[in-house]
Amino acid sequence: MNFGIATVMKPYPMAALEIEGRYWPFDVLKQHGIDLPALEVKALFSDWFSHISYLAHIVEHCIGDPVLNSLGLPAEEVTLGVAIQFPNKVIAVGANYASHLAEMGLPVARWEPLPFFFKPPTTTMVGPGNTVVMPARTRQLDWEIELAVVIGRRLSDASREDAMRAIAGYAVGLDMTARDWVQQPDSPIKVDLMRGKCQDTMCPFGPVIRPAQFIKDPHQLRLQLWINETPRQDANTSEMLYRIDEQLSLISQFVTLEPGDVLLTGAPAGSGVSYGAFLQPGDRIRASIEQVGVLDVGVTSPSVKAFN
């Protein structure tokens, strides 16, 4: 039975099982006699692969046992937070889709070395809902859908084979960009990734972590994004210039990856700068990755602060 791991706000963060669009909060399961390895998602990563195998048996009971089945809450009755609160590291890979490089007027090739950077996690990461706050000092807030990879085992100078085996699961990620900050032609270094990509709420993530066992081939997934129901991005992960295992292996040569860390694997064509259109308060973003999930977020005015 396919399932996901989510965080529901009660209002405190609580792990939950997601099964076919319904949610079973861990504290409710515990109250009904179910022994659970942890009550928060991040704690599951202390031994992810054993815990997820155990949770698969609990999923069977949630479906087959009438009492446990009745505990499942429909999506409209839960508020979802960031699926993992919060990883030690969020690493974003750039220049990984030829189509995006072409639309940005950049060399279409595998860049050597692989470009990557960090997104400070606790304030950039938000879950579904009206959670993206328009930065007060930007007029060019852009979108990029990305397949997010969550790490299940420690990786240091890892082979590609070990890297692939260490993947815990996948989620939908959005790498938001303040285009009028990221490119600084008058600056000696020409780029400002902190103001351009790491402002508050600029990394929506979720809505669930889909365990890797349910994704047959992460390099054959359709990615789609709509702004106010207008299609903007439509691509496939097969277009990646660096495959996921290669990304993880290369990054682990310089940075030790830990259980629960998140990797954003790059964006295809269709970001706002290519249309000459940018986000405004009131806009809705719907981001879908085949087999993984659909992440819906809304953009609010700078006066609103919404972290979950």
Rank of each mutant, 00 (worst) to 15 (best):
K305M: 10
L101E: 13
L155G: 08
D47S: 13
A95S: 14
F117I: 10
H219R: 08
Y12S: 14
M164H: 07
E103K: 10
G282C: 06
P218K: 12
H51P: 02
L250R: 14
D47P: 04
K190R: 15
N69C: 02
V292F: 02
R222K: 14
P121M: 12
G272S: 08
T7I: 12
M164R: 13
A158T: 09
A178K: 02
A168R: 09
Q213L: 11
T131H: 11
M164L: 11
K30H: 12
M125A: 14
Y97E: 11
D35I: 13
E144N: 03
I34P: 01
T256E: 11
D65H: 00
P37G: 09
G298S: 06
E76Q: 15
Y12P: 00
D162R: 13
A16F: 07
A6G: 06
R284C: 06
W48K: 05
Q280I: 03
Q247N: 04
Y54N: 06
L147D: 05
A38F: 05
V8D: 01
M176W: 01
K197M: 03
D234M: 03
A212H: 11
F117H: 14
V67W: 03
G272H: 04
F26H: 03
P185W: 10
P13H: 08
S187K: 13
T131W: 12
Q280G: 00
G276T: 10
W24Q: 00
D142A: 02
I5M: 13
S271N: 15
I227G: 08
A148P: 07
F26C: 00
R165C: 02
L68S: 01
G270K: 05
H61I: 04
